[in-house]
């Protein structure tokens, strides 16, 4: 979004110490397996990435897996309600380490139009998010850009610094 955002100033990044470590990070970032929770127009745009036009298989993503033990990327689309939150937490706990999380669409980040008794607005304290993609629905090019940002975080092994507070809006 802003061209002057350098990742190294905001989190701890480490370079690969030897060749095998570099190969491990390279292989992890080029073969992510996603799992999708939620529904809405943002989830519809995520499905249309698998067509022939925005062929996402050339980035290494084969297809959506629906079993949490085999996935390492969690994509949350649509507003998080109080009824689906226990299931979402269950899915996140059953995924094996290492794992990354994308929040897709304006409704997942801030709730959108639906600020009422059904919304769970502090789900961010239980599940940490790595990349935010605003838009309603976001264009497919920005979703591909989000996957490239996750690649950058894996290659540099980005971890949060302890003294920077998370600013959410």
């Amino acid at each position: 979004m802003r061209n002057d955002f350098i990742l190294d100033e905001y989190c701890l990044t480490t370079k690969a110490s030897n060749f095998m470590e570099w190969v491990k990070r390279w292989a992890q970032s080029r073969s992510l397996w996603p799992i999708l929770v939620g529904s809405g127009s943002s989830a519809n745009e995520f499905y249309s990435l698998f067509g022939s036009r925005y062929d996402i298989e050339r980035l290494g993503i084969d297809g959506i897996k629906y079993s949490p033990a085999q996935a390492d990327l969690l994509v949350i689309a649509g507003p998080v309600t109080k009824k689906i939150f226990p299931i979402l937490k269950n899915v996140y706990d059953q995924m094996t380490e290492p794992k990354w999380v994308i929040a897709l669409g304006s409704e997942a980040i801030g709730g959108g139009l639906f600020q009422n008794h059904t919304l769970m607005d502090n789900w961010n304290e239980f599940i940490p998010v790595d990349v935010n993609i605003p838009g309603s629905p976001p264009s497919p090019e920005s979703i591909i850009q989000g996957i490239l940002f996750i690649r950058e975080r894996i290659e540099k092994n980005a971890k949060p610094k302890s003294d920077i507070k998370e600013v959410r809006y």
Binding site: F5, I109, P134, S142, G146, I164, Y169
Partner: peptide
Amino acid sequence: NHMLTGHKEEVLRLDFSEWKKL
């Protein structure tokens, strides 16, 4: 401008001067 993706450390509220720059 439809490319709005950001890392989690990027601030998503734009104040007046930043908005004019973008």
